[in-house]
Simulated scan of single mutants.
Amino acid sequence: MNNWLRSAEIGQELQEAWIVQNAVVYVLNHSRHLILAGRQKELVDALHHLLSIVKATGHSGDPVMLVTLCNTLARGLIISWIPAVATEKSRKLVRANAFHSTLDAGATSEIKTAVEVPPP
C-alpha cells in the first residue's frame, strides 16, 4: 500500500495524472476484499490522501475511477454510523425510529466530512 501511495505522490510531483490514476486503481483493486467486507474504515487515511492527490493532478479523464474512490472514501467515513441490517420481523420497528436517532459528536464530524467528499 505504501508503495502505491508513494507512486501517486511521484505522479503528483511529475504532474502525470495517468500515474496517479494507476495508483488509485491498484489501491482499490488491492483493497477490494476489505471493501466487500464493509471494512472501508481501515482505508480512510489512504483514500483521503489519494483523493487529495487526484484533486491536485486531475483524474485523467476516468470518471468511474474518481466516483469509485469518492464512494469508497465516503462509505469508509460513515460506515460505522450506518445501522446493521435487522431481521425481517424487527425491521418494521427499526424503520419507525431510523430518522429520529441522535448522533454523537464523532458521528457528526465524520458524516460532515463524508458529505464534503464529492470530486473536484
Results as ranks from 00 to 15, higher is better:
5 L>R: 08
6 R>M: 09
7 S>A: 10
7 S>T: 11
8 A>Q: 00
9 E>Q: 11
9 E>H: 00
10 I>C: 05
11 G>F: 01
13 E>P: 00
14 L>M: 08
14 L>S: 02
15 Q>L: 11
15 Q>E: 12
16 E>R: 11
16 E>F: 05
16 E>S: 08
17 A>Y: 02
18 W>D: 13
18 W>Y: 08
20 V>R: 01
20 V>F: 04
22 N>D: 14
23 A>Y: 00
23 A>W: 00
24 V>S: 04
24 V>I: 15
24 V>E: 04
27 V>E: 11
27 V>D: 02
28 L>M: 07
28 L>F: 06
28 L>Y: 03
29 N>D: 15
29 N>C: 10
30 H>E: 15
31 S>M: 08
31 S>W: 02
31 S>E: 12
35 I>F: 02
35 I>R: 14
36 L>D: 15
39 R>L: 13
40 Q>C: 09
40 Q>N: 14
40 Q>L: 03
41 K>Q: 13
43 L>M: 13
43 L>D: 11
44 V>N: 05
45 D>V: 12
46 A>T: 12
46 A>D: 15
49 H>L: 03
49 H>N: 11
49 H>S: 14
50 L>C: 06
51 L>C: 02
52 S>L: 12
52 S>D: 14
56 A>K: 15
57 T>Y: 01
57 T>F: 00
59 H>N: 11
59 H>A: 06
60 S>F: 06
60 S>V: 00
61 G>C: 07
61 G>W: 11
61 G>H: 09
62 D>F: 03
63 P>S: 10
63 P>F: 04
64 V>Q: 13
64 V>M: 07
65 M>A: 12
65 M>I: 12
66 L>Q: 11
67 V>W: 03
67 V>I: 10
69 L>M: 06
69 L>A: 05
69 L>S: 05
70 C>R: 10
72 T>N: 13
73 L>M: 05
73 L>I: 07
73 L>P: 01
74 A>F: 06
76 G>V: 09
77 L>S: 12
78 I>P: 01
79 I>R: 09
80 S>E: 14
80 S>P: 01
83 P>E: 08
83 P>G: 09
84 A>L: 10
86 A>G: 01
86 A>E: 15
87 T>S: 14
88 E>P: 03
88 E>F: 08
90 S>G: 06
90 S>H: 09
90 S>Q: 12
95 R>M: 04
95 R>L: 09
96 A>G: 03
97 N>T: 12
